[in-house]
Amino acid sequence: MTEVEAEVAVTPPHDIQHTAHAPHDPHATATGVTNTKLAIWMFLASDCLFFGAFISAYLLYRGRPGGEGPTAAEIYNIPFTSVTSFILLMSSLTMVLALAAIMRGDYRRLRIWLLATALFGSVFIGGQVFEFTEFYREGLTLSSNLSGSTFFVLTGFHGAHVTIGIIWLLSLWGLATQGKLSVGDSEKVEIAGLYWHFVDVVWIVIFTMVYLIPQ
């Protein structure tokens, strides 16, 4: 008997019509999916167009002459950024492990993985701060040329998204340490996770399109 089968076996059949009597029962929606998850997916779909605009601007202006100083592509530190990108990628793994932990009621691992995810995110942000400082030292600034403008604004807004994600994760971790997250709250971790993974996939696109593709 696998876990899955066991779960299925204990699932009781429900009466759909209870929708009519309990409109605020979170389990009773016309489609069966929860409002919160639907909302976060809507937000993520919308955010695609936000990042798309900045990525397009970067692609449009790539390699254009004008301004002064080096372009971003000339001073990328690919080994360094590869490592921070890798860390962000792995934070997605720790995030799903946190979700799996809370769903099976393993609160100790939940706390560990949540904290690990936030930590990985912070390392990524730290790397970005270091990278930005280095670039500024080498003469690439927001205003030096188009490459700087598009690079810093795009990666900066991505960094802002990651920072919000870190705050979110740390808040969940805080709740978890106080014992205020239980199996019933799994969806909260899932929602934060969806946001976190989205930020990660955006970075997957940025890392390839902005850093790796030859100029």
Partner: peptide, 14 residues
Amino acid sequence: NFATNFFVAANGGE
């Protein structure tokens, strides 16, 4: 506000 070049034609902006 930060003198970026997104729309500065002189620096290649569009």
